[in-house]
Simulated scan of single mutants.
Amino acid sequence: MKHLIFTCIVFSFLALSSINCNSITNTAPDSVYMDYDHHKVPYKLYAPDEKYSLHYDLEEISGLALLNNERLVAVEDERGYVYVLKAQNGEVERKIKFAKGGDYEGVEVVGNYVYVVKSNGDIFSFQISDAEEVKADETDTDLSSSNNIEGLGVLDGKLLIACKGKGEINDKKVKGKAVYEYIIEEKKIANEPLFHIEEEQIEAFIKKRKFFNKIHGFDPSAIAVHPLNSDIYWLSADKVLVVLSPDFKLKEVVRLDGNIYRQLEGICFAPDGTMYLSSEGDGARGKIFKISYKSY
Rank of each mutant, 00 (worst) to 15 (best):
E181V: 03
Y182V: 05
G121Q: 02
N170Y: 09
N120P: 03
Y113L: 13
V117N: 00
Y113A: 08
I184F: 12
Y115V: 05
G111K: 03
E168S: 14
G121Y: 00
K164R: 15
L159R: 01
E132F: 15
L160F: 03
Y182Q: 03
K164I: 12
D142Y: 14
G176P: 10
E199C: 00
V154Y: 03
I149E: 00
K164T: 14
I161G: 00
D122P: 00
E199G: 09
L155Y: 15
D142A: 11
D142T: 14
E192F: 11
V174K: 06
K175N: 11
E138A: 15
H196K: 06
F124A: 10
L152V: 07
K135Q: 02
K187P: 09
K135H: 01
G165C: 12
S145L: 08
D156R: 06
A162D: 08
S119Q: 00
D137Y: 14
P193Q: 00
K188D: 08
Y180P: 02
D142N: 05
G153P: 08
P193E: 03
V107D: 11
K118Q: 13
E199K: 01
E181R: 13
A162L: 07
V179P: 07
K158L: 07
Y182W: 06
F126D: 10
D171F: 15
D130E: 14
S119I: 01
E192C: 05
G151W: 01
D137I: 09
N147Q: 03
V134L: 03
D171S: 09
T139G: 09
N170I: 07
S119V: 00
A178C: 10
T141F: 01
G121C: 02
